[in-house]
Design a protein around this nucleic acid. Sequence first.
DNA 1: GTCTATAATATGATAGAC
DNA 2: GTCTATCATATTATAGAC
Lengths: 192, 192
Amino acid sequence: MKETMKSTERSVIESLAGVFQTHGFGGATLTLFTQATGLKRPSLYHRFPDGKLGMALAVLEFAKQQLVGEVLAPLRESGDPRERIQRAARRMADFYDGGNDTCLMDALSVGAKGTDRETIDSAVSEMFSDFIGAFARVAAELGAEESEAFRRGEDAVARLEGSLVLARGTGSTAAFNRTLDDLPDLLGGKHR
Amino acid sequence: MKETMKSTERSVIESLAGVFQTHGFGGATLTLFTQATGLKRPSLYHRFPDGKLGMALAVLEFAKQQLVGEVLAPLRESGDPRERIQRAARRMADFYDGGNDTCLMDALSVGAKGTDRETIDSAVSEMFSDFIGAFARVAAELGAEESEAFRRGEDAVARLEGSLVLARGTGSTAAFNRTLDDLPDLLGGKHR
DNA sequence: GTCTATAATATGATAGAC
DNA sequence: GTCTATCATATTATAGAC
């Protein structure tokens, strides 16, 4: 009975997430949020008394639950590790719209100022840890000792994040999809 | 005699670049620019009649010359390819302050709106092409056929970009420095 | 919970003196 | 080339009716 996902509906959060993905923290405006959600400014403040910062944190929390909790769920199941990695990879392709979506951890850590920046970076850091940790555990399953497993997790997350930056900058999602294909080998430590 | 680097001094461009790195395009403000450069608003508009967009493009152009023209220069020299990659890697470590600097291609492609976004993405895309191309040529030298060399270049740039995102989000530059260490093998196609 | 109306501030940009 | 002074607009945020 711990279904404590606030009261705010999923659709509102997803709309806000889309604005943050496209415009980053600094570039996101209340006007964009009202257009994306259909809610007027006062309604948004009613749901998020802390304004833009509160929205960003809610979006990050939601994204973390989605990514680590659901998208990467196959990594925590049983069965052949490489096959589970491939299943998680397929879900990630979906989660990032085939590489066309900007990662929120990237978008939100750019453009915030002062204390907002620190607060957001703290949440982003936590999400990265969970992300890397999920990868590292499978790498360990595949035979890597602890510190090597962590390195493989970090490197894989780095290549994924970077390929999304590349996709945004160049319009090509090739590197992103190739990284997903390589994921079993990257975590398993096989050639390349 | 083609020393056509505008008139604007290097130090001004570098100050602007610092603001863009920290705040992204959307988060960068004229006030921040005046503080960073010591110039008042009208002086900035005198140098950059197109305002923030003009500053961003000038900064990108400067960064491209720096990165591709100087930092990666060893890749175009003669001698052992792996040794030249290592020299370029050392310069990249310097260029990105050991992993503590945000990449401008990342920061500037987040937060711009409308036509500004398109203009910037176009410049970013060009810079990525040059970056990847420089890597791909060395990969080809190391024996990869053309399309494979391009893939290695893309993947290497992706891991570098992503490791910088990771560094900004987590505070750890480990993945960035490891990627630089791995660069000869990544471009040469050796294990891992 | 949502809205209209509005306030307070920040921001991009310019005119015109020096 | 740089500045002081200023403007129009965009932006965050809130009061108060429904």
